[in-house]
Every structure is written in C-alpha cells, then in structure tokens.
Design a protein around this nucleic acid. Structure first.
Lengths: 350, 350
DNA sequence: GTTGGCACTCGAAGGCATAGAGTGCTAATT
DNA sequence: AATTAGCACTCTATGCCTTCGAGTGCCAAC
C-alpha cells in the first residue's frame, strides 16, 4: 500500500488516538491533539480517502473514524516505531522471571505469567517442539506388576515420563533388559526419527518372548510419541473482562469460550507457526489482527507471538492475545524482552 | 430453625420458582404456579414473616421476594429432596469419564471436565492428599552431571517425580548408592512422617562424603515434600459468563479474577475440608452458600464439594462452583454420581 | 386465621426533545 | 489543484416524563 506522507501521519494519529481514548476520532479532535498544519476540512478529505482505501471506518454515519483491521495492519507493518522498554520496566520483568526453577516447563509458565501481568492481557506459550531433540536417556522402571514408568531425558534438557501398562508376568529383570536394549539403540536419535519400527527393532536383541516384548515396546513407543506432544499454557483470561473492548458480555463470553478450548488455540498457534515457516517469514514476530485470526470470538483481538529457542533446533512460541485496540509497539517490545530473558534463562538447561 | 409446614412449603416454592425463572416471586404468581389452598393475601402474610425471619428478601420495596443466603441454607438443609439421576444422565456421565487413562491425575481431570459439562458450571477438583500414603519406591536417577531425577511411587498408585540439582562431581555410582540407601529405609513410611532428619539418617549408611551427600539428601527430601503438595484443577470458568446471574460485567470480572488465583481457591477448599473434619462433619458434602464463602466475588455463588477416595486414607475433593440460584438437588446428585464413578475407577490404580 | 380491597411504591419501558460531535458537499480562496 | 469556511444533515447519548404492571402492606370484614 502506497500512502503519501500526510495520509500516513493521519492514519498514525487516528490509531494512536483511538487506542488511547477508545472513542471514534473525528477531524476536529485530531487537529486539537496533533500539530497538523491544515484545517479540519482537509483532514476530512484525507479521512474520506483513507476510508475509501479501507483503512479506517465509521461505526455509524455521524461518528468519528476507527481503524479497520487493514488500518491496524498498515500501522503495524509500516507506521509504528518500536521503542525499547525503560530500564524500570526491564528490571520489573527481570525480577519476575525467577531463574531458580529446576525445570524448563516451570520457567516457561513463569514467563507466561509475567507476560500476562506486564501486558495486562491474556498471555500464552507453547511448550517446546521437541521433534528435533534427541534421546539422551530412556529408562523403563518397574513400578509394580503390570505397571512401569518410562523416563526419557532429551537433549534439550527436558525430562518426560509416562506411566504405562505392561503384561503382569514380566519380571523386573526382563524389563531392565528391554530398557537397556531400547536405550542403547535409540540414544542419540531425534524424536521425529523414532517410529514404532525403530523401537521394535531396538528391542529384538533381548530374549524376552515375542508377544510380551511387543506390548512393552509399543508402550515405550507411545511414551516417546507423547513426549513431543504440544502443550499450551494460557494465562490471564479474566483480564479481558476488564477491558472496555469486551464490555459486551456476549463478546466476552465468546472470547473466553474459545480460549477455554486450549487444544484449539494450540492447534491454531501451530498452524500460524507452520504458515510462517512456509513463507520463509524470518521476522521474529507473528502478528494476526482481528478477522485475520481464524478463531471464533477473536474478531476484536490481536494475536502476537514470538519464538523462543531452547536449543538451535528446539523452539516454541510465547505471546499475547489482547484487544486489537492495543499499544502495539509497547506490547511487542514487552513480548520481545520476555522472550530474550527466557532464551537467556533457558541456556542453563541445555 | 422451626417452621410450620406451610411456611416450609412457601419457602420451598419461592426457591423453586426463583431458581427456575430468575425473577423475584410475588404472592400472586406463587398461587398461580402452585396449589396453595389459600389466598394471595395469606401468602403475603406468610411471606412477610419469612422475611422477618431473614429467609427471603426484597430487591426493592415493590418487587417479589428472593431467597436470602439463609433461605437457601434452610432449603438445602431441610427442604429439598435429592433424586437420583435418570438412567440417561447416568449413562452420559459414565460415558464421559474415560477409564482408559494411565494416571490418576488424568482421571481426576477427566472427572472435573465431565462435571463442568454436565452441570454447566465451574467445576473443580483437588489432587489427592497424599500425606497418609506411603512410599513404595524411591529412585534417584542421574540425568547428567549436576542433575538428577527423583522418582517416587506412592502406595496410592501415584507416581511423582522432580528434577533436582546435585553436585557436579557425583558419579552415577554414588547416586545409586544414595538412592538405594534412601529407598531402603524410607519404603513403607507415610509421607507425613518423613522429615529432613529421617532422610538424612537414611543416607548415613553410604560412604559418600558428607557435604555432597547432604545436598543430595536435601534435594530428595524436597522432592518428597513436593510430592504431597496440593494441586487444584479448575474448569469451565467461562461458563459463568453465560448465566444471567453474572450478566453484570463487574460481578463476572470479580468472580473470574478470584478463580484465576487457583492457589487461593485451593487454600480455601483445604480450609473447608479441615473445618468439616474438626466439626466431625461426616456428611459427604460440603456446601457453602453466598456470603458463607470467604472468597471475594463469590457472594452470588454456591460452592459444593464432595470427597473422593483414592484409598482409605488418601482422598481429595471434587465439586462445583455455580450461582447460588441453582438447582441444588440436581447439582448435588450430579456431583455425587461423578464422585462415585471416580471412586470406582480409582480402584484400578491402587 | 383468612380474605377482599385499596392505596401506594418502584422499576422497566417507551416517547420525545435536546445537545453535541461528526460528516459530506459546495463554493470561495490561495 | 489543493485548501478552507460554511452549512445542512445525521446519528447517538442523555435526560425527562409518562405509563404500565407487578407487587406490597394494611385494614376491615368474614
């Protein structure tokens, strides 16, 4: 979209004003609040053109203008300038992200919590995508007859486990044999290269009778597959209720209803991630505005995520869902700072 | 509270009508909907007395009456009759509570989810109180230099683990020695009898040098303590937004704000549990109505929980937070049925 | 103890006028 | 050709008034 400078300024001003006042902005108040060296009539003409371009719109005939999704998009893509957080704000975040936790998951939850508190919106994080991490250890521990625990240590410093059912007859020794054989042959393999066949082959070297063996191997395989399942952490849903943008109960309900289905949100974040990758989008932020979000009830929201890195090949997303009437530059730098802090803290785990 | 029969009938009718219509109920509509063999004037007199007793109240001078907290309390304690769920409803719940999960926690989450869906309210469950369960196994596994995993198998069929930091110098062998020694001497002990001293004594038999040993033992102790920390699962918060009782955004926000602090809710459930125990309340339900609930924003709610049992000595709570204008008899039987189903399914894990 | 009757109260809903912010258009100005 | 002043018009929000109806308390009669 090519806009002349003055149109850019006008759109910028409209977005700024609307974001801070939550009132449709008219030509007069625009003049009052900004140093335009033209009359309101001229602005009215500009605004009519911006409306024609689909960048702003009127809630009704005799009201001021509000940015459309396209207008926000233009603002985000070309108009806004991102500033660094103030040292105070940085310190606040540093302080909140506690580095004393022992597990990556806790660190991520911690960062998510912090992000929701600093932005005042809903925050979310995806667990790391572990497909590319490799097995460093795998142990099958007998818990009691018929029950075992599969413990996996992954290269990304993550520990996963799962209780599985095994045949009752199996002895402690047999399990240890299987455990050893599987570990020996799978260690060093990335999770996404481990298939049921791989696991079954790994177990062949033991002398445990076939049908029993097969069941244990299958369970081990299932445990490995479960280890790279994606989790999502959502936090601060209730904060949306405090925003004037969701003062209509209907909207608030639709929004929270959708967010309550965390699996659906996780799936959507995943799609976004994949789409970004396909497009070779090396921008570190993914931003979806209003109707661009393919989730019901999020028409008035914007969805911003960044990518954190646990290792070179293992990453996840962290971000915010807020009203589309938000201070984009601020929120983006908040996410960015939390992400960087998270990346730094994560190094301790790898 | 001693009420004559007619007063009981009137209160019963008022609660029923108000619950189903969400309108203050007046003397005339009461006559219309129920077979009172008296005139509306008589009912007005009765209602005036009920109001005097604090059982019902007027939103304003010229409106009908609504039950007060005390009125609901009376209703719940003495008036309502609890019916069994219909076979259809039972089947629906049976179907939803999936018995194929491998861990108790999943089963509990499952039941919580089901409860929220069947009641349409917020449901919650506490994780089992494991203080009285005893250690069946405890293993410390070396993950990498400086990092180990403490895995505990408890008598209640629960598996817990925690990643801990250990001194870098320790060898695999040394850890195994400690692990063996601790397990040997702690196996069979209830969690609440395990103290730091117990653990340290348990480790003494090894030849691992003192300061290193001590750190590992401390971490093991911390892992054990963490194992009996209480978790709470809350689900369906967004459903409250659909209820007319929370059509005021302010109330809804206060409510969801409070519920978002799950630690606080967990603490409160715990208090309720302890209070019930002290009073020797062997009733299987704990019910708190309106202002009886010592949590901000829950003035218009009722809080109903039941106790599930994982083993004789290990139990937890499962229940519902809904509007106080609810169909108590129905909700109670729903909770009761879910609890029974949960108890049944839990037997598989012990 | 019960009832019919009646005056009174109060909130909800609808109608109506007004104020205010904003718009688009036109004609004049630079 | 771009800008501006001016003006008629539009639409919402607000406040005020009225009406309507469900409900109440109380009193006198049964």
């Amino acid at each position: 979209m090519q806009l002349d400078n003055r149109k850019k300024e006008v759109l910028h001003a409209i977005v700024d004003d609307y974001v801070s006042t939550n009132e449709p902005v008219g030509s007069k108040s625009l003049i009052e609040r900004h140093n335009f060296q033209v009359s309101s009539a001229t602005l009215r003409n500009e605004m009519a053109e911006l409306e024609h371009l689909g960048l702003i719109e009127k809630p009704h005939t005799s009201a001021g203008r509000i940015p459309s999704d396209k207008g926000y998009r233009e603002y985000v893509n070309s108009l806004m300038t991102i500033e660094e957080l103030s040292p105070m704000e940085q310190l606040e975040i540093e302080k909140r992200i506690d580095s004393s936790v022992d597990e990556v998951t806790d660190l991520i939850k911690n960062a998510t919590h912090t992000l929701s508190e600093t932005t005042g919106f809903v925050s979310l994080a995806m667990s790391p995508r572990l497909k590319k991490s490799f097995l460093k250890q795998l142990k099958i521990l007998m818990i009691e007859p018929g029950k075992a625990l599969v413990v996996m240590v992954l290269s990304a410093g993550v520990v996963k486990d799962k209780v599985v059912r095994i045949p009752n007859f199996l002895s402690d020794e047999q399990i240890m044999k299987i455990s050893g054989a599987v570990e020996k042959s799978l260690t060093g393999k990335p999770l996404d290269e481990i298939t049921l066949v791989t696991v079954e082959t790994a177990g062949k070297s033991t002398d445990v009778p076939e049908p029993l063996l097969k069941q244990v191997l299958y369970e081990a395989y299932a445990a490995i597959k479960q280890a790279d399942e994606l989790n999502i952490f959502l936090e601060g849903e209730h904060r949306m209720l405090g925003l004037p943008d969701f003062s209509s109960l209907g909207r608030a309900r639709d929004l929270l209803g959708t967010l309550s289905d965390s699996g659906m949100v996780a799936g959507y974040v995943n799609e976004m991630e994949n789409a970004a990758k396909e497009q070779g989008n090396d921008d570190s932020f993914m931003i979806r505005i209003g109707q661009e979000i393919a989730l019901e009830g999020l028409d008035d929201c914007s969805f911003i995520t960044a990518t954190y890195n646990l290792t070179d090949s293992v990453s996840g997303n962290i971000g915010v869902i807020g009203p589309k009437r938000m201070l984009y530059s601020k929120v983006i730098s908040q996410i960015d700072f939390v992400k960087k802090k998270l990346n730094k803290e994560m190094q301790k785990f790898t």
